[in-house]
Simulated scan of single mutants.
Amino acid sequence: MRSSLWLLFLSLLSVFAQKVQVVAASDLQYALPELARAFEARYPQFKVEMVFGSSGKFYTQLTQGLQADLFFSAESLYPKLLEEKGLAEPGTRGLYALGRVALWLDRRLGLEPGIEALKSPKVTRLAIANPLHAPYGRAAVTLLERYGLLRRKDVALPGISKPFRELAWAEIPWETLTQGVEAYWDTTPLRRGKPGFELVYGENISQTAQLALAATGAGLLALPLVVHESLSGPGVYWVAPLGSHLALEQSYVVLKGKARPEVLAFHRFVGSQEGRAILKRYGFLLPGE
């Protein structure tokens, strides 16, 4: 009898659970559900619902009225802009991880993991996230540039007085580069010695990983995705050194008017010792470590 009452109580909790609606960068697709499960085990009266996608697209949608409680971005710009626009709760913007880019290669290519592998004639297609709105795409482009595999063209950008070639990574107005990477960067180093070469764009880093796995055999992806068995099994990977690409200070923020107890509880849990341990286990580099 007691057991039946307890089951009834738990079922009622699930029906009347106070929900936390989260929109998050898709490199969190494995770690965030685990964070949610641990949080819900501690607070069974709360329920976390998640949608994953591109940080830039979520930012645009949030400015247009998308309803959510918490926003997890793959870098710090978008939460900061939301705060400046009065669309985020003051004092809730925080850093939860530092993003790392990794080159993933299909094992069947028979290549040693490393940036030099991209020069191999076997690599004729490379998946990257769309740098217009995906921070990992921007990091991928800057990584290729850092190793001399992309070279900036002598192009002028509307409204920018400084030559494109002289812009620092953080100064590039990525959202204006609408013609594709090859309109602004020379891909000759990636094409040399090959019958052809193509950059293939994913709308977010999760879709980019799917493209690498199913179509291109190579991709510049987020470390937390490549360490997952879905990619580490069929592939090998190389982790880019810190400082070799655009810094990805992954930040989260409570959205304006959403500072309810359950939302703030999950916000605190992510930054707790237990929450940080989960993020670390899924391949995230933690701030301060």
Rank of each mutant, 00 (worst) to 15 (best):
L28E: 03
L144F: 08
L157Q: 01
A212V: 06
E116M: 15
V155W: 12
Q250W: 05
T188K: 15
V48C: 02
L118W: 02
L95W: 01
F72M: 07
S14A: 14
L225E: 01
P44I: 06
F71N: 01
L12P: 03
L13F: 01
T188W: 15
L150D: 01
K19P: 04
V254G: 01
Q210H: 09
A38F: 04
A168T: 14
S230W: 04
F72V: 05
V181R: 07
A25Q: 06
L5D: 12
Q179S: 11
Q18G: 06
D106P: 10
R281N: 15
R276L: 08
T216A: 11
R108H: 13
E175K: 08
T188H: 15
F72A: 01
L213D: 10
P135T: 07
Q45E: 09
G180M: 15
G99L: 08
P90T: 08
L279A: 08
P189D: 13
R268G: 07
V23M: 07
F39Y: 12
V22M: 09
G180Q: 13
S73D: 07
L81G: 00
G56V: 05
E274C: 05
L28G: 01
Q207I: 12
P135C: 09
L211P: 00
A259N: 10
F269D: 03
L28Y: 03
W6M: 14
R281C: 12
G159V: 11
Q210F: 07
A38N: 05
L62C: 04
L157G: 07
V155F: 13
S3C: 15
W169I: 03
L255G: 00
H267E: 05
A127T: 11
E175Y: 13
A68V: 04
R281P: 07
I160W: 13
V51A: 09
A265M: 07
K258G: 01
A156W: 12
M50I: 10
P121K: 11
G193R: 14
E83L: 12
E274K: 10
A127G: 14
G148H: 10
S11Y: 10
Y136N: 07
L225Q: 00
A140W: 02
L149A: 02
L118F: 10
L211Q: 01
V101T: 09
G233T: 10
A97Q: 00
V236N: 05
L77I: 05
Q210W: 05
F16V: 11
L5M: 12
G202L: 13
A117K: 03
A215W: 15
I160S: 14
L5A: 12
K162E: 15
G243Q: 09
G94H: 09
P33L: 10
L82R: 02
K153L: 14
L70I: 05
P135V: 06
K280M: 12
V200E: 12
L87R: 01
A247M: 09
V181I: 15
L10G: 06
A36M: 04
V123A: 03
N204A: 11
R42A: 04
E249T: 06
L10M: 12
P224G: 08
K258W: 04
F164K: 05
R93K: 10
P261D: 14
R152N: 06
P121F: 15
Q21S: 06
L225R: 00
P79F: 04
G219F: 02
S272D: 06
